[in-house]
Design a protein around this nucleic acid. Sequence first.
RNA 1: CGCACUACUCUUCAUC
Length: 341
Amino acid sequence: ACVQHRIIDDALQILNVMKTRGLAPTIKSFNALLNALLWSKRTDEFWDTFRAMSRLSIWPSLYTFNIVIDGFCQQGRIEKAHEFVIQIERDGYTPDVVIYNSLIDGFCKAGELSKAKDVFLKMVDKGILANLWTYNILISSHCKKGDMEGVIGLWDSMLESGLVPDAFTNNALVDGLCRKWKMEEVERKLEKMVDEGFVMDSVTYNILINGYCKEGNVQQAFKLCEEMWQIGLVPSVKTYGAIIDGLCKRGDMQEAEKLLKEIEDNGPSPNSIIYNMMINGYCRQGRMDEAFGLHDKMVQKGLVPDVVTYNRLISGLCKKGLLQEADQNMTQMIHTGLVPN
RNA sequence: CGCACUACUCUUCAUC
């Protein structure tokens, strides 16, 4: 419960109370905690907890291993994840489909589709059946790469295995098509999909809205956003993000500001990604005062500028020839613990 | 001690 309510510290405290009373938590409790520590990026405490487990003679399960594997993947340490899988195999464990899925996804996200395929083949070779998640991982990464031939092959073998595509599969496909086709063509394909029973959800809308924005058609994006409300879907920060970025990219900072104000007042509260878009918009126009104004505003709201924020500001300053200011910002960025990329 | 129930892991959408 603590983990679900994002109060990890309370969970840690309860664990301590249990320890003083000589009660042993189960492996499931530890797994929940380990996972929570991982997505809070509390890596040190993660390993501390991991080690504490074996001191209590509580042995990790495949769930535990997968949390570790996925953690390595999220940090981009995919080779480390791979080694870890090999190690647990040596220790006599048999990785399950979820572990393979994590590894496949890790390689896909790292852009190494051929290695992902190697892992996939190894899994099949060991007699472990791919499930829908496996196909969703592979299909979405091929979609992102624009390899629609590959997608067709995967889609067929998914159907041959008796698996039925779900919202994730279909949305991944629509997203891939949006990146490759004109929106007009996407709409025609989408119509067919809907005829065949696909129900559009808010992710589908976000994908379409993003597609139209990328095509420069912000008008249609607004229309779809309106449509969401009409059918009972609530636009999220990602929905507005797609539109705000569309407006910023076409240089319409007035409209972007208007929309930002709207969501600040009664929408989903804007995150640092939204402010980055705005900052980038102003930087492109050389309006550094406004850009820094937004930087200050985001800090005031308790948001933390990230690498993207600084990259945009530094780039904007450089383009204006303000190298000294750019340098100062880079120093400041490093000072806050960020690593220039 | 065993069993059952409940809680734990992997996939789709916005920024350089």
